[in-house]
């Protein structure tokens, strides 16, 4: 058991796997436990970068690049822009109820979910539906499957992203010209004074 662990850590893949997994678990627990929004957001972004490392180990090059571009580049940038609307510097005061029960329930239900989804994979001999091709790069392989077998879901995802963009613009952009902090009636008073002159 212990010799196996040492032998697996000696290979490059094993060492990278253990380093990435320990770092991601640590960073994600900081995200979940931290009281400060900025600490939570930066540790989440760092963990997303490390998760793309997992994808590169697993040979899913294109998925790793998409993870870097979309998750770290777009989603975390969106969060950090949204942070300008909220008061991010002050600590969050939360009323936490019965912490140990929450940990127990969360752990147990996650375990049940993982067992439910992992059991069919272990019991059956799964046949590859769209097998990877030898001698073809991962990005090319993904493109061939994505634009043939998964073309309709791909287009539906594109429409869904468009709908989400319009919804985001309408929700966040409404009354964007009004200030959140300044009193709007102050402007009216200035106008009234101007009219009197």
């Amino acid at each position: 058991m212990f010799e196996n662990f040492i032998a697996s850590i000696m290979t490059i893949e094993g060492a990278a796997f253990y380093v990435f997994s320990i770092l991601t678990i640590g960073l994600f627990s900081i995200t979940v436990m931290s009281k400060n929004v900025l600490y939570a957001m930066t540790s989440l972004a760092a963990a997303m970068v490390l998760i793309s490392g997992f994808f590169f180990i697993l040979g899913a090059d294109f998925l790793g690049v998409v993870q870097l571009v979309v998750y770290v580049g777009a989603i975390m940038a969106l969060y950090s822009f949204a942070m300008m609307f909220f008061d991010a510097t002050k600590d969050i005061k939360e009323k936490t109820t019965n912490n140990s029960l929450v940990f127990l329930l969360g752990g147990l239900s996650a375990l049940v979910l993982v067992l439910m989804f992992a059991a069919p994979i272990y019991s059956e001999n799964i046949q590859a539906l769209y097998p990877m091709h030898e001698g073809v790069g991962n990005a090319q392989d993904v493109g061939m499957v994505l634009f043939t077998k998964y073309l309709i879901p791909f287009e539906v995802a594109a429409v869904m992203l468009l709908v989400a963009m319009i919804a985001g613009i309408i929700l966040a952009g409404k009354k964007m010209d009004e200030s959140l902090t300044e009193d709007m009636s102050a402007d009216d008073e200035i106008l009234i004074i101007k009219d009197e002159k």
Binding site: L78, Y130, M132, D141, V142, M160, A164, A167, G168, L171
Partner: peptide, 30 residues
């Protein structure tokens, strides 16, 4: 399992996460 279906699902999950964040942050700002 030498199968590309898992990666495809991961792509769609990333797309769904992106649209969820766009709509959700708008609602949070409101």
């Amino acid at each position: 399992y030498n199968d590309l279906t898992g990666q495809m699902f991961a792509f769609f999950i990333i797309a769904i996460a992106a649209s969820e964040v766009a709509v959700g942050l708008g609602i949070l700002i409101v």
